[in-house]
Amino acid sequence: MIDFLITPLKYEFIVHAIAAGILIGILCGIIGVYIVLRGMSYIGHGLSHAAFGGAVIGYISSVNLYIAAGIWGLLSALLINLITRGKKIKADAAIGIVTTASFALGVALISRIRRFTKNLEAVLFGNILGVTTEDLVIIGAVTLIVIIVFFFLYKQMLFVAFDPESATVYGIRVNWIDTIFSVILAASIIVSLQVLGVTLIAAAIIIPASTARLLTNNFHKMFFLSIIISVFTSVAGIYVSFYLNAASGATIVLLGALIFTIVLIQNYIHRRIMEHEHVHVHSHGGIVHHHKHIDKEEHRHEHKEKA
């Protein structure tokens, strides 16, 4: 077992990959909770695809891929805001139009120049094994900023995710929270591109938080479970990909999906056991009642209509 864990660490690129995996795991675990609870899963998916258009433009104009992708992603987010302001087009439709058009622009430009380099392939599918020390510094800096932001805005983020209207009444600036979150989401997506790629980022953000949601009804626990699951799947995914010689980003996402499926099945079985129905007979005032009976969580129960 120790050999299993130590052997890959003899290679510097694997050590870099694991360090990146831990940092990206923390990042996706934190961001994912807020995205899942606010029902914003589509924006993570959309912004990562929009960034691809920017990366291709950056490649053609010899600008750093990630800087171009970042600027393009931010412009896309602003454009989505502008379109939805008119209220006739809802956010999901605006995200679909802007981000898919950006992705299509990237595909069209690639087809014109008929070159598909390793760098662009990394943007699409991720290349965790090509992470450099500079990449690690950038990912680490963004992870640290996200941790600091969530530490000091944890209360506000929780209130806004739960009940945005009341949060306004209780003195929280919801627009500010949304703007700050959009910026750290865009930054997180850009630094994760190198590791996971456009096509896999959304899943890496959503799966750990969704798995954590299945495991607890407590926000604080969900937050920490999401980070633990995310870091575990990242690191374990890199090990599995090393031994199976499979693409690391895809392995991380597949491992996350496997854990989610196991928890989902366990949850379903638990619910079936907890909610088993039986005929419950009781009486009051001398009248005997027969009800279908359901055991609920916390040893509370309610009666169904008379069978």
């Binding site: 609870l37 929780l158 209130f159 739960f162 009940d163 209780y170 929280i172 969900m222």
Partner: peptide
Amino acid sequence: AIEWDFPVTVEQAVMMGRYNKM
């Protein structure tokens, strides 16, 4: 208007009323 599936306990939901004073 409340999303009842949101993962908060009674204490966490009530504590939100204290957030602007914390």
